[in-house]
Amino acid sequence: MPVRRGHVAPQNTFLDTIIRKFEGQSRKFIIANARVENCAVIYCNDGFCELCGYSRAEVMQRPCTCDFLHGPRTQRRAAAQIAQALLGAEERKVEIAFYRKDGSCFLCLVDVVPVKNEDGAVIMFILNFEVVMEKDMVGSPAHDTNHRGPPTSWLAPGRAKTFRLKLPALLALTARESSVRSGGAGGAGAPGAVVVDVDLTPAAPSSESLALDEVTAMDNHVAGLGPAEERRALVGPGSPPRSAPGQLPSPRAHSLNPDASGSSCSLARTRSRESCASVRRASSADDIEAMRAGVLPPPPRHASTGAMHPLRSGLLNSTSDSDLVRYRTISKIPQITLNFVDLKGDPFLASPTSDREIIAPKIKERTHNVTEKVTQVLSLGADVLPEYKLQAPRIHRWTILHYSPFKAVWDWLILLLVIYTAVFTPYSAAFLLKETEEGPPATECGYACQPLAVVDLIVDIMFIVDILINFRTTYVNANEEVVSHPGRIAVHYFKGWFLIDMVAAIPFDLLI
């Protein structure tokens, strides 16, 4: 008679799926529990143990900040960024110097990925580790590398530091407007667009060049630039800015003055950032001319202004700041037409079709709590990747769950009947059967004279019903998954307890 339990259901295979997918890609990662103190490590794979030199037993239950890997060259700011990422709910990448158990130093890129439950609360953290440099290539500990984003994938490793954006290309926007319009339909740009040429040739750093990471940081200074100062900065030398009595002219307006920039070969870094931020506020060169004239017309309804409409929906549905990093990277690809469009465009503009998908598509409701890094690593669709929660398995109709209350009560009843059979069957065979043979035949009273025979008949009927119930009862397979398919249940029961239950259900007393 089957006594099969499996009270692990309803099970959740999400954690096993993450481990299996990460292991298949030869990654070095740990999984931490966000619900406990210090976000203790609950799993670390073999790749991480080989990377740091510690065994799994030495890593388990330690804080996922990996303070046991810190050393003299470990930056405090990087460690603080990892700790801050564990307090938030967004994906974050941090470069930090770690030390192995043998004392060797290596520069590592740590990717902190939160995993949320159905309520939107962070319950786990996945920390992925990628070695960037070994100890002989690690720089000085005073050099802070965590304020910069990861290198873009479309640049060669040897040319990542030679990417320079020439400031004269930004200063000569109005001069290039006529050349853009003359391109017409034969050019790649839309009317009114501004073409910015980027020099990728390796050259020595000069005062006129600005690194790509500095251009990325310009967006942080746009908020500090007032509207009046932006307007004066875009007017140009024809209309000098008016300053109040006793007030000095704005240095932001002076930063885009061609006369002032041409007199000296070098520009201050602050002026460069502010000038680029001011130019980015204009949607095209037409807006710059309109600002000089004193009238700013409404933005025209053409394809170039609607190019950012799908980007707005993608940004609203993005799951991490990696989408913004990807957008900034692609927006700086050289030799393309940049349409400086305000994100607050007309909502009635139709979304044009684009061959290049900048932001990841909208994630469906079932995966809105899973970050983009987890979705990318697992390579699963929205119909396959579940949320991290207890999910009731989908069972067929008329199927009994093996952990249901009805099955528990039924098993206790069958257990009592088995005990009765084990006690009274030998007793009936030894004593009652002998008395029946010696006594007179009682054929007239039937079952009324033999109450134990009636009980034995009921017990046999219950055993037959138990066999039928076992054909529709779920079970737990070797992978700790609840199986509810009727065919698989029948095959599993035939290979197991079916023969024993059938022999126990045969009414031998009635056959004798």
Rank of each mutant, 00 (worst) to 15 (best):
I359F: 05
P347F: 04
G189N: 15
I42R: 01
G224T: 05
S153E: 07
P157G: 09
A253S: 11
I358E: 07
S331C: 13
P2G: 07
K135S: 14
I333A: 09
D136S: 14
V36P: 06
E23A: 05
H221A: 07
R242G: 15
R4F: 15
V180I: 14
V122C: 09
R273V: 12
L378F: 03
S304H: 12
P251I: 05
F163Q: 15
T174W: 15
K28V: 12
V122P: 12
R77V: 15
V41E: 01
F163G: 14
C108L: 01
A223L: 15
M133S: 12
A203P: 15
Y54N: 01
I30W: 01
L316C: 05
K21I: 10
L311T: 14
L256I: 09
M133C: 15
S209A: 03
R62T: 13
S263L: 09
D144L: 14
I18L: 14
V180R: 15
V196L: 09
S255V: 15
Q25N: 14
K93R: 13
I82A: 01
R181S: 08
L225Q: 08
S331I: 01
I18E: 03
P63H: 03
Q25S: 10
P334N: 08
Y327F: 12
L380E: 04
R328M: 05
A83I: 07
A40H: 05
P2L: 06
L167D: 10
S153T: 15
A260K: 07
G158C: 05
T371H: 04
F129A: 01
Q25M: 07
A244S: 05
L212P: 12
K161C: 05
S283K: 03
V138R: 14
L349V: 11
M60W: 01
C108P: 01
N369Q: 11
G103F: 06
E365L: 07
V112F: 05
C44R: 01
G186E: 12
H70R: 03
N257F: 14
R27M: 09
L69V: 01
D144F: 10
T65S: 07
L267A: 08
V198F: 06
G187L: 06
Q61R: 13
H302L: 12
G262Q: 13
E95R: 13
V180N: 09
H70L: 03
D259R: 06
N220P: 13
R281S: 07
M218N: 06
K364H: 15
G236P: 07
G294R: 05
V122G: 06
A57E: 08
V374L: 12
M60N: 03
A223M: 06
K362G: 06
G103N: 08
L165V: 06
V341Y: 04
L267T: 12
T319V: 07
V374S: 01
P299L: 03
S318H: 08
C52S: 11
A97V: 14
T201N: 06
F22Y: 14
E177S: 14
L225P: 05
V132R: 15
S140E: 14
A160L: 13
P141Y: 06
D199R: 01
T216C: 03
A350I: 09
F22E: 13
A121Q: 12
T145M: 05
H309N: 14
N339G: 12
E90C: 08
T145L: 09
N117S: 07
P299I: 08
P63S: 15
G24D: 13
F98N: 01
R366A: 09
A79N: 01
P151V: 13
R176S: 06
L225K: 05
E274F: 06
M291Q: 11
T74K: 01
C66L: 14
H302Y: 07
E372Q: 12
A121M: 04
D119I: 06
A185Q: 05
Y327T: 14
A121F: 13
T65L: 05
P347N: 03
Q84L: 06
E118V: 09
K135A: 08
G103Y: 05
K373D: 06
P300T: 06
R292Q: 14
L109T: 08
F22W: 13
I336T: 15
P241K: 07
S243R: 14
F106L: 01
R62P: 01
G184T: 05
S320F: 11
T13G: 13
S153V: 04
P258H: 09
E58G: 01
I30Y: 01
N146G: 08
P249F: 07
I31P: 01
N317R: 02
C265T: 09
D287H: 04
R4W: 12
R4P: 15
T375L: 14
R159I: 06
L256G: 07
P227K: 11
I126D: 01
C52K: 01
D323K: 08
S209Q: 05
P10L: 07
P241F: 15
Y327Q: 12
T174S: 14
G88F: 03
R312E: 06
E95L: 09
K362R: 13
G158I: 15
T216H: 06
C276V: 09
Y43T: 01
I359G: 14
K21Q: 12
S206T: 15
Y327M: 08
V115F: 13
A121S: 13
L87D: 13
K135C: 09
R356G: 10
P151R: 12
R273W: 13
V138C: 13
Q81R: 10
G238C: 15
V196S: 01
C64Y: 05
P237T: 07
K166C: 06
G149L: 11
L338F: 09
R366L: 07
G47T: 06
E95S: 09
M137P: 07
L378I: 10
T201K: 15
S26D: 15
V370E: 03
T162A: 06
V222I: 11
I333P: 15
G139L: 13
I363F: 05
Q61P: 01
R77L: 13
N38Q: 10
V115Q: 14
I30M: 06
R20E: 09
S264E: 11
R27T: 13
P237E: 14
I358V: 14
V198T: 06
H302M: 12
F48W: 13
L200Q: 15
D219C: 06
T74Y: 01
T74L: 01
P72K: 06
T367S: 11
V131I: 15
A78M: 04
R76I: 14
D197L: 01
P298F: 08
P258N: 11
T371N: 03
I330T: 14
F68W: 10
T329N: 14
G183S: 05
A57D: 04
P237H: 15
L51T: 05
L171K: 15
V377C: 06
